[in-house]
Structures are given as C-alpha cells and as structure tokens.
Nucleic acid binder design. Sequence first.
RNA 1: GGCCUCGUAGCUCAACGGAUAGAGCGUCCCCCUCCUAAGGGGAAGGUUGCAGGUUCAAGUCCUGCCGGGGUCACCA
Length: 497
Amino acid sequence: MAGPGFINLRLADALWHGVVRAILTEGGDYGRSILGAGARVNVEFVSANPTGPMHVGHVRGAVVGDALARLLAYAGWNVTREYYINDGGAQVDVLARSAYERYREAHGLSPEIAEGLYPGDYLVAVGAALKVKYGDELLDKEEKYWLSEVRDFATGMMMEMIREDLAALDVTMDVYSSEKALYGTGKIEAAIQTLRDQGLIYEGTLPPPKGKLSEDWEPREQTLFRSTAFGDDEDRPVQKADGSWTYFAPDIAYHYDKVQRGFDQLIDIFGADHGGYVKRMKATVAALSGGRVPLDIKLIQLVKLWKGGEPFKMSKRAGTFVTLRDVVEQAGADVTRFIMLTRKNDVALDFDFDKVLEQSKDNPVFYVQYANARVNSILRKAREAGLSVSDAELAAADLSILSHEAEIGMARKLAEWPRLVEIAARGNEPHRVAFYLYEVASDFHALWNRGNDDPSLRFLQDDPAVSRAKIALARSVGVVICAGLGILGVTPVEEMR
RNA sequence: GGCCUCGUAGCUCAACGGAUAGAGCGUCCCCCUCCUAAGGGGAAGGUUGCAGGUUCAAGUCCUGCCGGGGUCACCA
C-alpha cells in the first residue's frame, strides 16, 4: 500500500507488448472509440460575417472547431460541421452599398466610400463582376432598385471567398445555414411561438444597466424572452420597440432548427468577445428542446501575432490587416493548425511568425513531426538492410525482447492513447491531443538518444529478430502520432528536409 | 457596477476531484568514430493570487476578496 486508497501493482511486461501488437494490428484505428455511440452532434463554428475575407481572428476558431469535429468523429459521434451565415442583418446592406461603389468604379466613376462602408479592395472584384452581370443597368438608380440584388450577389461572392479561405486551412463544412433564409418562412415566428406556449415570452421593460451610466438609455417596452428562468441574468429582447426582430430572434430560430433536425448534442464555437451570449443561448436551447439537447459553448480567446520579436500590430488603415490567407501562406496550414491547438481554447495564444517556422525543439510542430520522421528513417534503413518490416511482420515479432524500462515506458505511454481520446472527446478539448503527441514525441526522442549510451537500445540491431521487436515499438509510435495528427488535421511528414 | 473568463516555477503553459503539481524556454553542468545532435541526460527553481468552506482526498468544486482580459437593452 502506498497511502490510503492506492494499491500499487506492477503489470507484466507482456501487457505492454500486447499494446504494441494491438497498435500494429489495428493501425490508424487504434484508439478509435465508440464512446459517442453514434449520437448526432452539431458543431457550429467560424460563422464569420460574409462581408470580407477571413482574418487571423477567425483562424483559431476554425481550427479548433474542425479538430473538435475530427476528434468527436474518431470517438464515435456522428458529426455535422456547420457554418451559420449572418446574411440577414444590416451589415450585408453595408456590404451591398460598398460593392455598389466598386461597381460604379468599374464603370470609370470615382467610388464614394463613405464612412462606415467597407473600404477593402477585395470588393473591386465584386464591382467588376457586377458590371459583367448587369452592365450599366444599375447605374444612377436609387438604392431600392438594386440593394437586394447587389446584396445577394456580393454575399454570394464573399461566401465563395470564405469557402476558399477555409479550404486553404483544410476545413470543410457539411452545412451552410443562412440567417436570411429564416425570414419570411415563418421559422422565427414558430420558434418564438414555441417559447410563448411555455409562457416564456412577454411584453415588458428591462431595468436600466446597473452601475455604468449610459447617456441615451430610456425605458422601452419590448417583447422579451424569459431567459432568467434558465439562469440568465436578464430577460432578453426578441423584438425591438418598433416591432422588428432583434438579432437574437433569428439566433433562437436557428438553434430551434438545429434541435428540430434531431441533433442529440449541440456545440457552438464563439469568439471570447461573445461570452455574454452564452447564458441566453443555453437558455434558448434548454427551453426549445425541453432540456433534451445539451449545448456546449466553447469560447476562443485572442491570438496575438508576433514578428521579429515584437507584437505585430494590425490596422486596417495602415494596410497591415492580417488575413487567414496571409497566415497560411507564411506558416503553412499544418503549422498553423498545430500551433492553434497548443493552448486551451479559453487562454490567449501567441503566434510568432518566426518561431513557428523554426526547425528546432522549441517548435512543437517540428518536434512531433521530427519524431515521426525518425520512425520512418528507421523503417527506411531497415528495408535498405534487407529486413522486411510490414506491420503484419512486426506484429508477429517476438516482442518479449522489449524488456528495458525505457522501452516498456514507451509502450505504456502509447497505451494511454485510447483513454486520452475519450477524455478529450468528453470534454470537447482537442488541445489535449496536441499535448499528448508532444509527450509521445518527447519519450521517443529520449529513447532514441538512450541508444547513444546503450547500443542495446538502438532500434537497428544485428539480429533480425531483435531488430523487428524494436522496430515494432518505433513503428507503433509512428502509428499513434499519425492518428493524432489526423485528428488535428495536420499532415504527417516522412522526412525532415 | 453586474456577468463571463483567466491567475500554477523567473518567462510561456500542462495536469478525467486522486499519490511526491509536470513540460518547454531561460540559468548551470554534461552527452555525437553511433539509425537525422534539427536530439538527449542531469541540477537549480512552487505556500497553484489571498482567505475561508465541502471532501477520505482540492490547482481542480463552493463562497468572499485581489489582479488581468472580455462583455453589458434599442447593432450583427
């Protein structure tokens, strides 16, 4: 006994040999779980406004959401990745007006980019495309004649661009849901009615904000959702004083839609600046699903960019606005994805353009990739020496040769993989996979170097039977690293060059 | 001011309510006729912001403070 409640046992080495054999036999399926039992989960992420290219702030959410989706799929869930297009609000009208100016510009007129319009030159192409489609038909017309068409056209092009941005990060959505499509179909009314039937909708006036004096605040009677019944701090308006919907109303309808589509579980990935919406969204889903569907909301903290040892300041005006494309072009999708997962989602993350490209142990991406490259190096050398090392042959090797504590320790580490997958999936925490891979790589590098002092620990030996056993261990490290990188959406490299 | 979130080694961060809280960087010492040293070993470094509480057991859960960040009807 080693203290209350603990019994120390030493497990036979054969157990750990069995782990190595299982990895070689199951390959990339080792660690796959049925924890999710096929439950349908919807992961909504990115959902950037369709008014411009994705910027660096969206990258982390995109990576975390996609890696979480991959993780849950690996752990037995039936996953749907979804993007909610905010194409129903005032910001897409602004987009339309901005694009219209570029359309005029395409006709040789000087654009009037008024204060509040989007100045980005990515809209020049939209203007040109509008000219191709409409010729001079829309020129010198009042806004009411073109606003709707230009809006649809421009948001379409923006979404096209966003899809390409996501593709550059190797992120693919299963479903794109449109906010605009909720209007005029009665879906918002139906969702609100469902709440009304439960007595959760009423006409009332909210108390003024406490503490902080706000100049233009005045009491207004609005239609409110009694979200306080589900733990929110205040009831929330769904209709403005003039009777139109607030932004919150389509959000309610959208989540109702997800519930009605039969998902067993919902996950929303928001920027940390949307932390204030967590309680009301949870209240919404609780009310609309009768408590059946859990909603987990992950808040993604800021990414701080660094370059040349100092913070990289972004400014739209100075043209130092960093887009997703900028990041991917400079760092590569694999490096970007890995680094974005080296922190818990709710902690700020530093992204140093110089450091992430460094090929040294200071760079976790490199460190993990290098471990896998070393595994492949061993396999390559073995084949060159005429040793056949297919997984089947390695699995059939006499693994009892692996008896050194360093080798057993390595196998023990690999044995943690299936459990780690389940812990990470249960908590919706894909970052755990990145940390685990780092640990596996660390153990492997250490084992590799033990061969410097103790030649019996090298993977390639004179006796083919001994070699196969040791290579089996190395190969199983490679299998787990590749499986893990697959969950992170990072391509394993065979060689570091 | 309310709410959310974070606070762990000098720095950046891990740790499903379980044992002696772990890595990396930095500092100091050491290891290549050897599968990629692009790596590794060792030393030093802690009252887990503070104070209570729950528990057989708390960095983790609860309450209150302190500090950083975010957010606060009628914009999305």
